[in-house]
Nucleic acid binder design. Sequence first.
DNA 1: CCTTAATGGATGTTTGCAGTTCCACTCTGG
DNA 2: CCAGAGTGGAACTGCAAACATCCATTAAGG
Lengths: 202, 202
Amino acid sequence: MSVKRASSARGRTERAIVTAAVGVWARDRAATLPQIAEAAEVGRTTLHRYFPEREGLVRAAVEHGLEAIGGAIAEAEPDHGHPLAAMRRVVAALASVSEAIMFVFGDQSLLRDVVPTAEPDPPTPHDPVIELIRRGQAEGVFDDQLSAEWIQQVLWAVSYTAFEQVEQGTLAKFDLTATVTRTLERGITARAGERAGSEPEL
Amino acid sequence: MSVKRASSARGRTERAIVTAAVGVWARDRAATLPQIAEAAEVGRTTLHRYFPEREGLVRAAVEHGLEAIGGAIAEAEPDHGHPLAAMRRVVAALASVSEAIMFVFGDQSLLRDVVPTAEPDPPTPHDPVIELIRRGQAEGVFDDQLSAEWIQQVLWAVSYTAFEQVEQGTLAKFDLTATVTRTLERGITARAGERAGSEPEL
DNA sequence: CCTTAATGGATGTTTGCAGTTCCACTCTGG
DNA sequence: CCAGAGTGGAACTGCAAACATCCATTAAGG
């Protein structure tokens, strides 16, 4: 069989389908394939040509989402600068791929069922966010009484919550990063002598 | 028509079905009715006698879950004592109904679709947790730079995350309340001169 | 211009679950 | 002990979505 290079058309169509799948499933995990096809502006037939089985599209969408998230985090350079500043950059980066996050992490079964088959061996080869948290703990910036994994989960959870709030209009998109970082850094309690905007300098 | 009092058997069976539904759907929202019936240890026929349509069972399960959650919160007496102490009691109370929480709040569409029909008019008549948060803000205990609604969402999100971690064995059930409250109260950052167990007295 | 790849509409098949019916079995209270 | 409520096994229908096939149309490259 000849190794046929995918024509540009194939590549574009496939991207459109996968992107549409992430977007639609982020808002409704029960969406049907015709809905995906419509969102991708392709025919049902075409969708089936690219992804003969639903499972294949789910897997591709998850991988695409994880790639987008990983890319955004990498761009935020979590391994540079003051840990707090790095974390703020990461939060801002996550906001730019909120759709992917709400899709991938909106359904526990996705990560439990799809990822194991996608990446066989290492449970988490080297998660840059975990590394950032450990670095911050070592430098005395993050609470080392909490496990790095727990802090990471909280980071995801609070970010996810903020995305939802923005989605339903309860939180202004503009305030997202500030609200999330303030909550993460200080919790929900007041401080003696606090004033608005009195975050520590970095 | 005679007002026939439900026999004890009917009551027990219905409770078993609804409870099983909450438990099963908390872990897998896509679970089928036969799965629910099996978990409830009743026949599919019986389940259908009590809930002719799936929708009815979903609604009953959501209402049952909300009742359990509301009851647990009420028992925690969020309107008494120091706001921080009250919040800690609330978190502990939520942990006792984690299954209901993971079911009701694990699927956004449940609250969006089911609750509106269940409670026609008031969007949120008087949420005791919101009241607690406002009280804490007024007393200078909770951050009044954050909206009460946001703080409530964070409270739910962090608790929910902790339940998940316990579920998958990443967090010890024993540490749940302490971890959640510590995270909520102090965020994920370290404090100058901190020591383990140095939470403020109440 | 003409060949070929890509697309998508229409239509058909299959599968799985919700909803239904019927009847035999088993409790439980009088 | 016996009548009736409660139960559940089995089998059937209906439906919606996934999966598959055919063919006409369009777009792209030599």
